[in-house]
Design a binder for these strands. Sequence first.
DNA 1: GACTATAGTGAACCGTGATTCCGGTTGTCA
DNA 2: TGACAACCGGAATCACGGTTCACTATAGTC
Lengths: 197, 197
Amino acid sequence: MTETLSGERPLRADARRNRQRILESARQVFSEFGSEAQINDVAHRAGVGVGTVYRHFPTKEALVAELVRQKFVLFAAQAREALDRPVEPFDALADLMRANGEALHRDAAMQQTLAGFDDEVWATAQPALDELLALTQELIDRAHRAGTIRPDATASDVGMLMCGLCATMARSTVADSAAGFDWRRHLELMIDGLRAR
Amino acid sequence: MTETLSGERPLRADARRNRQRILESARQVFSEFGSEAQINDVAHRAGVGVGTVYRHFPTKEALVAELVRQKFVLFAAQAREALDRPVEPFDALADLMRANGEALHRDAAMQQTLAGFDDEVWATAQPALDELLALTQELIDRAHRAGTIRPDATASDVGMLMCGLCATMARSTVADSAAGFDWRRHLELMIDGLRAR
DNA sequence: GACTATAGTGAACCGTGATTCCGGTTGTCA
DNA sequence: TGACAACCGGAATCACGGTTCACTATAGTC
């Protein structure tokens, strides 16, 4: 999870420890409250001062961005596993989407990022996203060969649809779920839409 | 567009005029910048003081909510027209969704509201939304009878999907359009997904 | 034309929460 | 163990923008 930074001198032991704690706390806090959670909360939960958070991440946005990036990395890992599984490619893709859906469901910050306008966060996570998309594309290519997916489907389509799913999550998580919105239903509709006819 | 308020004494002429100007300016400003636009901007563009805006709308959120409500009313009107058109019901629905898509595309505040977590605004617009959903349901019922729509499709599905579409719009409007996201493509995928197989 | 309830004005206020900053700590290395 | 760079803490600062309010202007009415 923690990359070895090549161009930078290694962090002092305590700093490394704190950075880790901060990321963990941030993951919890932002998952629960989205980006409206406060840096103070993160710092407090991590048992450090605000200043320490800022030593590691120049802005709140940068911290959120790193979390999002990590999540994309995780998704990419899952996509890689999906590629290894010996099941029908389209089913593998569908299951992957379902798994991602559940993960997004538990993470308000990710929902906001995917459904929202937050360009900066998005930019930071771009490389990780690109890899995820590449892996997804591989899965889709296989499905094409098997003829089980819509002929013109692309990884980009899946990305868009998952972003859209987050919008519905926002609505079905919050309060009364206005008009009977149900993200799992939304997801199944989309999966069906991708299927070959 | 402007309802006749029953329980309240009529506004003074200048007040009515200003209220109208404020709504128009707000429509422009919020369409362009979403809810991050400032009340000051709205007031300035309308040629009135901030205080005047607050005389008409207790909070910024209330102003946005009214705009959203009006938009839903507009959508409902369009849905009614669609019901009157003598075309195949599913096509009518699809065209309606396309038209709504274009409208949403030009309105950042609507995108944010539909894709976002903004429960209060949503609540205010609920009645208008309910009517829109009812009309949509009628269109869908007809399509069911014609057998041209997915047998289990509901108006709620359409609502969810349109909300999802707004998420993609956010991504394709902003900057680089990250991963080749294209909301029109997203929309067509969804329409296809709703079609009977 | 005068009177008054309504309406308009915008500088000032205020809460919020991100960010800074500097005095005190602590790892690391010789 | 001493020295110093790296690091930590968290009160204070600061920017921002929604909201208020004391005062002025004006539509509507007699």
